[in-house]
Amino acid sequence: MITKDILKKLASNLMFEMEEEEYDTLEKEFAIFLKQMDLIAHIKDVDGVEPMTFPFELDINDHFLRSDVANNEINFDDMKVNVKDYEENKIKVPKVVE
């Protein structure tokens, strides 16, 4: 059973907030989705196969691993264009408490 509280917690763990009305829409979407997924759980043969994470076998072995050669591409000067706050060539954020 999906409740708004569960959805809010999920959003919170994803580091964002949503409008109240959006949670209503989301609840409805979840209801439909979970119903569909429930049907899937009952499909014949579903239990007997391994989940697929790649579209097909790529057959690669350790020869394809990258050679250990160092090559620096960028430095802080390059990064600056997209950084809002920095000091001493490091990105600055409010103090992070462990």
Partner: peptide, 26 residues
Amino acid sequence: KSNSKNFSSSKNGEGVVNSNLSVVDI
């Protein structure tokens, strides 16, 4: 110990702040 990082080619070792970098690292 290695010359480069695990998933990118930037240097694994000493260096000036924010210089041993690849776009992958960021």
